[in-house]
Structure formats: C-alpha cells, structure tokens
Design a protein around this nucleic acid. Structure first.
Lengths: 208, 208
DNA sequence: AAAATCCCGAACAAGCTGTCCATTACCCTA
DNA sequence: TAGGGTAATGGACAGCTTGTTCGGGATTTT
C-alpha cells in the first residue's frame, strides 16, 4: 500500500509552512521573498517550486489545511449541537479568547501585515462559521442573509483590530461585550435623545 | 515671485498620478511595477525617482491630495452646518450614490485590488468623516467613541463591497437602507423568536 | 538672454523569479 | 535488506525589477 504521501515531501511542506509563519510574524507577508522563505526553511530553491508555484500558493495551502482542520473539529463538537440559533454571535466569545492567547499570530493575520490573501481567507473562514450560527430565516427578508453574514464578520474583525491597535489591555470579555452590544443593538441606543441609564462597569477611558 | 511649483514638475506629477489610476483600473495595484507606471506616463525612470521614492509613495501622495480637497470642500459646505448629529450616518447616502457613479474606481479601491495602502487610506478618510458626524457624547461611556467610529466605517465598507460583488443591480438607496437599518438597529430585530412567514419573492439565491 | 531648474536616456549593481539539469540522498515495498 | 522509485540538492540561467548616477539637452523663470 502506498503511504499517503512521501515522508520527505511532507517534511518539506511542513518546513516551508513553519518558515512562512515565522517570517510573517517578524516581517509581515508582503515583505517576504521566496528567497527568505527557503533560507529560513533550509530548503532548495528548486524544491520549493516543485511544491508550490509561489509564496501565495504556499500561504493559501496553509489556510486550506486550517480550514479542513476546523471543519473536522466542528463536526466532532457537533454533539452538543444546539443553543446556536439563540445567539447568532455565539462564536465571538471563544474567538476573542483564542485571539488573546495567540495575540502575535492574530496581529499579523488581521492587521495589514498579512496581506490581501490572508485577509480574504480569514473572512472566508469566519463567514462559514457565522453562516451556520445564523438562524435560517430572517425577519421580513428585507436584508439578504449573506449581507448579514458579511456585516457580522466585518464587525468582528473591526473589533479585533481595534482591540489590538488601541486597547490591548482590555480583557477578551470586555471587547466581546462591546462587540455584541453594538452588533446586536446597533447605534440607536447610543445616540437617541433618551437618557437611558446603563449600569455598566465602564472599563477604561477612551483615548482618541 | 516664485511660482508655486515649476510647471514641468507639475505636469510630470500629474502624468504619473493619472497613469497610476489608469493602470490600477486594469491591473490592480499590487501587480504594477514602477516600470509600468513610467511607461504609461511616458516619463523617464530617473524622473520618477526624483519625485517619489516608489509606487507606494506615489499612491500615498495621491490620497493626500484627495484628503485635502475633501477637507476644503467640507469647510466650504459647512454653511448648512447642522442636521449632523441627528443622523450619525448622514454621510452614507451621498457616498453610495457617488460610488454608483464611479463604480469602476470604487471597485478597485475597495476590493482587494487596491492593496493594503489604499484600504487603510480609505479607512482614514472615512474615519475623519464619521468622527465629525458622530455626536460628541455617547450614552454611558460604555463604548469608546473610536470603537464606534471604526464600527461604522467597517460596516460601510462591508456594505459597499457586498454591493459590488454580489448585487450590483441594486440601487444606491436600497443598499443605503440596508446599511442604515443594520448599523442603527443591529441584528436583534432580525432574529426574534417569532416565526413570521414570508412568501419570499427572493430575487436570486445566496450563492456562496 | 541668462540662470536655474527640470527632464531624459543610458548605464549600472544588486536582487528576485522561475526553470532547467545532473547528481545525490532518501523512502517505500517486495 | 536490496533495489527501484521518488524527492531534494546546488548551481547555473535569462529575464525581470529596483534604485542610483551621470552628462547633455530642453524648458521655465527671472
């Protein structure tokens, strides 16, 4: 029986992916050359091109792996299946916490430093997540489902980015609370003429 | 009196900016080389570097000009100054209409094709706009002003992008209505427990 | 018209990109 | 464990890009 894949090839691919990630952390994606990557991975030039067509191909393949892993992990956890549709933002809490733990990675992925590809790949992954948590029917059909999905994903990324760039000291749950409040209730509650009292333990002052 | 700037220099800069814009429309920003730009502009290589340090510098300088123009146009229109704070999304309607008229330009700027620089420059411009329209005090201080600004800008860009990519047939006012509804009222209105039946005359299915 | 400024074109070193090849090292399986 | 198959290597290649430098020529400004 032929093994899934040749061990050498697997090693090479792994080395390249790790090199890419490491380099992105310290130089950002755009600034990288194929040269940098193969140096870091200690892999021959021709070997690289035997596996990938360029650095973008390498990056994409990394995300594809990630997506497949997530898909599996998800169908595995599908045991406790419900509670989803109550809360269309169910993903966010875990996500913010995860981001806090791997702040370095998220920073490079989310900020401009990951490049356009990273950005859109992440949007894809999040979109899939959100689409599943979103109830199948929306009131009145006035707003297309897909629009809502994009709206949520965009808002989440905005929150994440703002957190890292401006208030990295906040706790995940604080950011999460703000994100949910704004996304669920909208702006109207913040600016109406009514002075509704909110007993919120305001975390920290705004510095603009 | 020394003229503001040498006529030749001005011509050169103009030619370069126009070349950049034209090329971005057909190839996207990332794919461009300085070579392409000076060919299109019919300008000598050394001349280019006498004015800008690279293509990014050229792009940035273009946005800076734009920002200054907008700033002037704004302080000029500041005659009818109020009505702002009633509607924190006042900018959107005009913006969507403008985008419809110059769809090609917006497409290249907003989608990935404009590159990270364009993206962040646009966010900057919009942020300034939104910040001014946003009432100075927000209820309860629970959510920092800047967070709200970013939220709005992100939602607007999301709407714009979705419009171009998925439903370009919609009119500006339709998109505007959806954008405002979602941003002002949030999701909560869309997902209540009530099961309202809708005889959906859905135009086209969500295709992912 | 003279002086100041700008543009041009060409040439340069340095770097990156993909692609080839012959050779070597490794892996898989029988 | 031996041998055929497969992958990795290093080097060399043409073609492209980037910035920089120069002197001569053209245009503007004063």
């Amino acid at each position: 029986m032929p093994r899934e894949i040749d061990r050498r090839a697997a090693r090479t691919r792994k080395a390249l992916h790790e090199a890419l990630l490491a380099l992105m952390l310290r130089k950002g994606y755009e600034a990288l050359s194929v040269q940098d990557i193969i140096d870091e991975a200690d892999v021959g030039r021709s070997t690289f091109y035997a596996h990938y067509t360029g650095k973008e191909d390498l990056l994409r393949s990394g995300f594809q792996m990630l997506r497949e892993e997530l898909k599996e992990a998800q169908s595995a956890t599908r045991a406790g299946a419900e509670a989803s549709h109550d809360d269309p933002l169910g993903f966010s809490t875990a996500m913010f916490e995860h981001a806090a733990r791997y702040a370095d990675h998220y920073r490079t992925m989310i900020g401009g430093r990951g490049g356009a590809v990273t950005e859109s790949e992440i949007r894809l992954i999040l979109s899939e997540m959100v689409r599943q948590e979103l109830p199948p029917t929306l009131h009145g059909e006035a707003i297309p489902r897909d629009f809502v999905v994009q709206f949520i994903v965009g808002a989440f990324l905005t929150a994440l980015n703002w957190w890292f760039e401006r208030k990295p000291k906040l706790s995940p749950s604080q950011v999460d609370a703000m994100f949910r409040r704004l996304t669920l209730e909208g702006l109207s509650h913040l600016i109406g003429g009514e002075h509704r009292q909110v007993g919120r333990p305001t975390a920290s002052r705004d510095t603009d």
